[in-house]
Amino acid sequence: MAVDPWARPSVQDLHRVLESLDQSESENNRAVERLELNVPAEVKTLRGNTVSAMTREVSREGIGLIHRGAIQPGPVRVKMASETREFDYNVQIEWCSPCENGMFLSGGKFVRPGLPGVDQAE
């Protein structure tokens, strides 16, 4: 059965990609601690496209995502949901890089509403 090129990656896809990156804790030069968080998310771009994604990690300042198809750097809205609550964040995507199986890793910073370009991603 063919895989939908825009379908949300599974948790197994995420773990496979992260294992292939062979990240070492000694190479983590990040200023802010990040927590692994693997939940479904939707990214709404400035052009109005909705991209299904999975979160990879989250910190006080930003979020990492995995998805099929590239997302251009710039302001987006990221929606996530738990069983009891929905979360909606303004994010400035700063980078997007291809990885295996037609998937992409991206990362961005949380931004406050009212900043130029952010509210247009609704």
Rank of each mutant, 00 (worst) to 15 (best):
F104I: 03
V39P: 01
I71M: 07
G64N: 07
F110C: 06
G108I: 05
P98I: 05
E36Y: 04
G108C: 00
L18Q: 07
L14W: 01
Q72F: 13
M1G: 14
H15E: 15
L35Q: 15
V39Q: 06
L35S: 14
Q72R: 13
S52C: 13
V51D: 05
V11T: 09
E36P: 00
G64D: 03
Q120D: 14
S59D: 07
E86P: 01
E94I: 08
L46W: 12
M54L: 14
A41H: 02
N101Y: 11
P73Q: 02
L46K: 11
S10F: 03
D4F: 08
S10W: 00
M80K: 11
S52V: 10
H15D: 14
G74D: 02
V43W: 02
V91P: 02
R30V: 06
T45P: 02
N101E: 11
K44R: 14
P9S: 00
R16E: 11
V51N: 04
V17M: 07
E86C: 00
L21H: 07
F110T: 02
S106Y: 05
P75R: 09
V58K: 02
Q72E: 15
W6L: 10
I71H: 05
D4T: 09
P9W: 01
G107Q: 05
V118W: 11
E61A: 15
T50K: 10
S20Y: 07
P75I: 02
N90Q: 10
K79M: 12
R60T: 13
M80R: 14
K79C: 09
E57L: 08
G69M: 08
S10L: 05
L18D: 08
D13C: 00
C96R: 07
G62Y: 02
M80A: 13
G69H: 03
N29D: 11
Q120C: 01
G108Q: 06
G74A: 04
G107W: 05
R77M: 08
P75G: 09
R47P: 09
E83S: 12
D4I: 09
F104C: 04
V58M: 11
V3E: 14
E83A: 13
E25H: 15
E100V: 07
L37S: 08
R112Q: 11
V78G: 01
S106V: 06
A53L: 08
L35V: 15
P9E: 00
A53T: 09
T55R: 08
T55G: 12
W6C: 10
Y89R: 08
D22F: 12
S82R: 00
S24G: 11
P40W: 03
G108N: 03
S24R: 15
E33D: 13
A2I: 13
S26K: 15
G74W: 07
E122A: 12
T50I: 13
V118A: 13
R68W: 03
R60W: 12
